[in-house]
C-alpha cells in the first residue's frame, strides 16, 4: 500500500484511488490438513445441510399444527397449568418438599443461581489447560450430572402431568361442538317430560325461554330440589300446579333442567364461574335482559 504524500483518493473520500486489494481468494494449500474456504466451498455444504434441516422442520410444522386452547379465562381456578417443556425441570424441582413452601428460597434462588452461575463462570471454575473431557473428570462429571438431573426432572414432570385432563380442560370447541354444547338433548327422557308437562310452552323448545312468558332455563342456578319445588308450586309469575306427573318423572325433569338440558359439558368454565358469582340472585342473566 502506498503511504504518505502522493496518495490519491476517490473524490474527497478516504478511499484510496489506487492499489486497492485485489479480489482473489486466499491460498489454502499452506494450511494444515484439508482446510477449505468458507466461501464458496463450505457454505455450499452448509446450505445443503440447512436445506435438509428445513425440509424436516417444515414436515414437523405441517404434521403438527401448533396448539391453541380456548380463550384465557382467569376465573377458571381449576385449570392445571403447565409451562413449555424447557421450563419443566424448574417446575418439577419446585414440587419437592425441601425446595418449596418454607424452603422455596432454596428452589427458586439458591439452586438455580448456583447451577446457572456455575455454567456462566465455567471458564474460571475449570481453569486447567486440558481440553479433553476425559482428562478433566470433575468438570465433565458435574456437567453430566447436571444434564442428567435436568433430563430426569423433565421426565418426572411429564410423567406426573395428567395429559388427558390437560387436553380436555383447555380444549377449544370448534363451531359444531360449540353449537352442540348450546343445544339441549332432545332425545333425553327429561325432554319428553318437559314437553309433555307443558313447560315447553313458556320456556321454549331449547330451554331458551320465550321472552315475557318464561325465562331461559338453560343455565338456571337452581338445584334439583328447588326446581322440583318450582315445577309444582310455581315461582313469581309462574303459576303453581303446572306439573302433573309422578314423583319419578319430576325427579328426571328436574335433573334434566339442572344439567342444562343434558347439554354436553364444554364451555362450562365460563358459565360455571358466572353461575357461582350470580348464585343466590333470583334471576338469571337472560331474565335480566328482558
Amino acid at each position: 500500500m502506498q503511504r504518505g504524500k502522493g496518495m490519491k483518493f476517490v473524490g474527497d473520500s478516504r478511499v484510496p484511488a489506487s492499489g486497492r486489494k485485489p479480489n482473489i481468494p486466499k491460498d489454502y494449500s499452506e494450511y494444515p490438513g484439508k482446510t477449505e474456504a468458507f466461501f464458496p466451498n463450505f457454505l455450499l455444504k452448509e446450505w445443503l445441510v440447512g436445506a435438509v434441516f428445513l425440509v424436516g422442520y417444515l414436515c414437523l410444522t405441517a404434521a403438527h399444527p401448533s396448539p391453541l386452547e380456548r380463550l384465557a379465562d382467569p376465573t377458571d381456578s381449576g385449570y392445571i397449568p403447565l409451562p413449555d417443556w424447557y421450563f419443566l425441570f424448574l417446575y418439577q424441582l419446585l414440587k419437592y418438599e425441601f425446595v418449596s413452601g418454607d424452603y422455596v428460597v432454596i428452589g427458586i434462588v439458591i439452586i438455580p443461581a448456583l447451577s446457572f452461575g456455575a455454567l456462566l463462570l465455567a471458564p474460571w471454575l475449570d481453569r486447567g489447560p486440558e481440553r479433553r473431557a476425559s482428562r478433566r473428570p470433575i468438570a465433565s462429571g458435574m456437567m453430566l450430572l447436571a444434564v442428567l438431573a435436568v433430563v430426569y426432572l423433565t421426565w418426572e414432570a411429564v410423567e406426573n402431568h395428567d395429559w388427558e385432563a390437560a387436553a380436555e380442560q383447555g380444549e377449544m370447541l370448534d363451531d359444531e361442538a360449540a353449537e352442540l354444547a348450546e343445544q339441549v338433548d332432545t332425545e333425553h327422557e327429561g325432554y319428553q317430560i318437559y314437553s309433555d308437562q307443558g313447560c315447553i310452552a313458556c320456556h321454549g323448545d331449547q330451554l331458551q325461554g320465550s321472552g315475557a312468558a318464561g325465562p331461559s332455563l338453560f343455565d338456571t342456578q337452581y338445584d334439583v330440589d328447588t326446581i322440583k319445588n318450582i315445577a309444582v308450586e310455581g315461582i313469581g309469575e309462574m303459576p303453581p300446579g303446572l306439573f302433573e306427573g309422578t314423583d319419578e318423572e319430576l325427579q328426571i325433569l328436574a335433573e334434566y333442567i339442572a344439567s342444562g338440558g343434558g347439554a354436553q359439558e364444554g364451555e362450562s368454565g365460563e358459565d360455571g364461574a358466572s353461575a357461582e358469582d350470580a348464585a343466590g340472585e333470583e334471576t338469571t342473566e337472560e331474565s335480566d335482559e328482558e
Partner: peptide
Amino acid sequence: VADHEVPEH
C-alpha cells in the same frame, strides 16, 4: 467474510 478458513476437524 469469504476467506475465513474452515479447518478439517
